[in-house]
Amino acid sequence: MWKSYGSGDAAVTALAGVSVEFEREHFTAIMGPSGSGKSTLMHCLAGLDDVTDGEVWIGDTKVTGLNDKGLTELRRDQVGFVFQQFNLLPTLTAEENITLPLAIGGRKVDRAWFDTVIDTVGLRDRLTHRPTQLSGGQQQRVACARALVSRPEVVFADEPTGNLDSKSGAEVLGFLQKSAREFGQTIVMVTHDPNAASYADRVIFLADGKIVNEILDPTADAVLETMKHLDTAVGVS
């Protein structure tokens, strides 16, 4: 897919022909220098933004060309989101925030699945709290739980640990990893942190809107090494 902003001289190409497939039930991380198009890629994949050229599919659904109603329903029923910050509605309790996508869609909560998710993120005793009464890490875990509870085709996370300390970050990442491995949840995560990327099953590297590398079963060191190459490569070119 291709994505450019603006037109004429001021045009910025954010994605310059990216072809990528994310395997079902896998945890994939996207890395790359700042401005390389990571967020843009994720937004296009998730139906939050449309591509200039190319096609996006989620499962059997062709995302490209859907109208607003179709995109909204796609996001509601087949996609889960975790943003870097401001994930929760301040007027709702943790539990209401978690079940919000279901409530919006008028769907019933699968209690057994809900309990499993809650116990995995370890939020059982926080369910009646409001977001302001939760720590940043807890808030991100609530956001993760919300992304999972509707059993979406895929969960997208944009720097979910960007604002957290390492301990809270590790909890969130551990939970994402577990979701993929134990519950078979497909997850795509954008991150800057090689350590975070090491929780994934696969890491793809983006530079200047193109995929330039990928590593399977990464370790933090391997990712760091690749990143260094990337930086110098980009710096030279």
Binding site: E73, R76, I104
Partner: peptide
Amino acid sequence: TRELGLLRAIGMKRAQ
């Protein structure tokens, strides 16, 4: 605005 953005992102329809 941000809350509204979030709600729309997780699938709230315009009518809603």
